[in-house]
């Protein structure tokens, strides 16, 4: 057979590995992970289970299985955990050849930090480079370990105060500088407390909380329950920077998942269609720590959507890891 290019094969291996995650979004079992290497005539990389009960040093086996018809030579395996996690060594070499149908297992030490409350996805990546074998030169395996449960709804994840009353502005801090939307000015444009909003085919509700209290999610990878099905997931919110973007991951009840990029424009001054978003409403001025002001400017709320896999029922959504992306509401369209 003609060997695919290195990039294509690496991408294939990665896709297959992620497929393992899609089938089992809870901690992937070793058996499930092993399924990622079942393709014939390939070199596959399997990462063993990672015990997330830290703080501890845990040993993680990585197996490179040679399903091709030629021996692997000069095999080296590198390993990475979540950013900032200590892995030692960074790579290991395997002496000798790995015959067709055989495998080689190397072990890495990982410093696992104390288990944190809340929902977390921990991604581990192993890359094998070699000569011979399927001729691709490299193969990648990924394992995602999950801990914790999604939050019951978006309100449970509220961690930022973005709307304040003009008579009490000090509690607000939408942008990290103590500024916030004016509750009065938002109400003037139909975005009052608990107001229903039609956006991108979804019916959403503004936060039903008092001004000056936590009313939005500054996105940080929170996992939130969202039940139902549809064509798209719609986010209602705004950005506190010009780069309020990130990846949304939607998990379905059948254990699969999908990902999509999204973003919301900065609450002022940025183009209203930045990152593919749609303007929902513009309010006049904003609340500053010392009171209402900046009335010459518009402070806006936007919507954006990500597609859902047809025919599947949403279980929960993992928001991007970008706290500049503020979400007031989230719902399904179509």
């Amino acid at each position: 057979m003609v060997a695919p290019s290195f990039l294509a094969r690496a991408a294939l291996a990665l896709t297959i590995a992620l497929g393992g995650l899609l089938v089992a979004p809870a901690a992937i079992t070793a058996a499930a992970a092993a399924e990622t290497t079942d393709a014939t005539d390939t070199v596959g990389v399997t990462i063993g289970a990672v015990d997330l009960d830290g703080p501890a040093i845990v040993e993680v086996p990585v197996t490179v299985r040679n399903q091709s018809t030629a021996a692997l030579r000069t095999l080296t395996v590198s390993f990475r955990g979540p950013v900032g996690w200590q892995v030692a060594p960074a790579s290991r070499s395997v002496s000798g050849a790995v015959k067709p149908g055989a495998g080689a297992t190397v072990t890495f030490s990982v410093r696992v930090p104390e288990r944190r409350p809340g929902f977390h996805l921990r991604t581990f990546t192993a890359t094998a480079t070699y000569r011979g074998g399927d001729g691709a030169g490299a193969a990648v395996g990924t394992r995602v370990e999950r801990s914790g449960e999604p939050m019951a709804d978006l309100a449970a994840a509220f961690n930022n105060t973005g709307i304040t009353d003009e008579s009490a502005t000090a509690a607000g801090n939408f942008d990290g500088a103590g500024n916030s939307f004016s509750a009065q000015k938002l109400a003037d444009v139909g975005l009052g407390r608990g107001a229903e909003v039609e956006a991108l085919g979804a019916t959403l509700a503004m936060p039903d909380v008092a001004p000056g209290t936590a009313d939005n999610v500054a996105s940080g990878g929170q996992a939130v329950k969202v039940s139902g099905s549809g064509n798209a997931l719609v986010l209602l919110g705004s950005g506190s920077s010009f780069s309020a973007t990130g990846t949304v991951t939607v998990f379905y009840t059948d254990g699969t998942s999908s990902t999509a990029e999204t973003g919301l424009p900065n609450w002022s001054f940025q183009e209203t269609d930045a990152h593919g978003a749609t303007l929902v409403a513009s309010s006049v001025g904003r609340n500053r720590p010392d009171g209402y002001g900046d009335a010459a400017y518009q402070y806006r709320v936007f919507a954006n959507s990500v597609p859902l896999t047809a025919g599947k029922t949403v279980d929960f959504v993992v928001l991007p890891t970008n706290s500049a992306l503020h979400v007031f509401a989230m719902g399904l369209a179509g």
């Binding site: 990290g176 500054a218 500049a324």
Partner: peptide, 19 residues
């Protein structure tokens, strides 16, 4: 620290120290 924070604005340590 990204992604917890944005806007190039310092945050006090109290909440994270508690966490």
């Amino acid at each position: 620290a990204e992604p917890l924070h944005s806007g190039d604005t310092w945050r006090g340590f109290k909440e994270l120290r508690q966490e």
